[in-house]
């Protein structure tokens, strides 16, 4: 299999009823096993981009989208679909089974997987997301974070090469959010899965290998999180939040205390402030 999980070349897209293009000349390449975050405010084209990449929207432009070297189009849809699993924003909209394990089994039943293998895969997926004790519970009785773990298990059971998270954490509380992202990170390295996460939350990009920012349908910035997180002014102009520690840095600057322009955790910033303070 190719080393390129996703390759997009010169992709533009316009919805039929719109006069303007939703996406403009996007170029993007993601290597197998990497984590790409697509960061942008609402209504900037990121969901359209993902739908095109997964073949859920027909690519009517001259540009090309390839998943593992295979062009995404109607003829190839069946095999493209095999590569990709998606977890969506609202945990309540993705359940079909009466119990957690039925729900995870649903996708496997659709693919006519043999019963013994199905049981094995459901078990192992639920173990992977640390939800095995909840196998017989009703999905509705779970918390938002637990529901998203089950949704992730349903995807994992199908053994995808690429997992797409479409604002999958945006409904969760801060703890649920962190723990889901940590879990995705673990699964990514364990199974060499490529992760494509779309988000409008700057705090979520820290774990990724590569970040792109889309605004007004165009790719505006691309790089590693450490590079993106220090672009205060640009982030603001794209309607994104400047990270908290960067806001603190600005405030310190006004007080005459200059910290280097790196992105740092709260603890690291505390150390720097302390160093300055104790030498005063």
């Amino acid at each position: 299999m190719s080393n390129k999980a996703l390759e997009i070349k010169n992709l533009s897209f316009k919805y039929r009823h719109n006069s303007k293009e939703t996406l403009k000349k996007i170029n993007l390449s993601v290597e197998k096993g990497k984590w790409l975050s697509i960061l942008s405010r609402n209504g900037s084209g990121k969901t359209t981009l993902i739908k095109l990449a997964a073949g859920l929207l027909e690519n009517s432009s001259k540009g090309s989208i390839k998943i593992f070297d295979q062009e995404v189009n109607q003829e190839n849809f069946a095999s493209i679909k095999e590569h990709i699993g998606m977890v969506f924003q609202n945990p309540d909209n993705q359940f079909v089974g009466p119990t957690v394990q039925d729900d995870v089994a649903f996708g496997l039943e659709n693919k006519s997987i043999e019963r013994n293998e199905m049981i094995e895969r459901v078990d192992s997926a639920l173990k992977d997301v640390e939800m095995i004790e909840f196998a017989n519970r009703e999905p509705n009785s779970l918390s938002g974070g637990q529901k998203q773990r089950v949704a992730l298990a349903s995807v994992l059971a199908l053994q995808p090469d690429i997992i797409i998270l479409d604002e999958a954490t945006s409904m969760l509380d801060p703890k649920g959010r962190k723990s889901l992202l940590k879990l995705v990170q673990k699964l990514r390295s364990q199974y060499k899965i490529t992760v494509i996460a779309i988000t409008h939350d700057i705090q979520e990009i820290e774990q990724s290998d590569q970040v792109i920012i889309i605004d007004g349908g165009k790719k505006k910035l691309e790089g590693k999180p450490a590079k993106i997180l220090i672009e205060d002014e640009k982030l603001e102009s794209f309607g994104l939040e400047v990270p908290f520690t960067k806001r603190v840095r600005k405030r310190l600057f006004e007080l005459g205390i200059i910290l280097p322009n790196d992105y740092e955790s709260k603890e690291m910033v505390a150390n720097k402030i302390w160093k300055y303070y104790s030498k005063m």
Partner: peptide, 8 residues
């Protein structure tokens, strides 16, 4: 505000 972006 669940699910809305920073400005929203």
């Amino acid at each position: 505000t669940a699910g809305l972006d920073f400005i929203g």
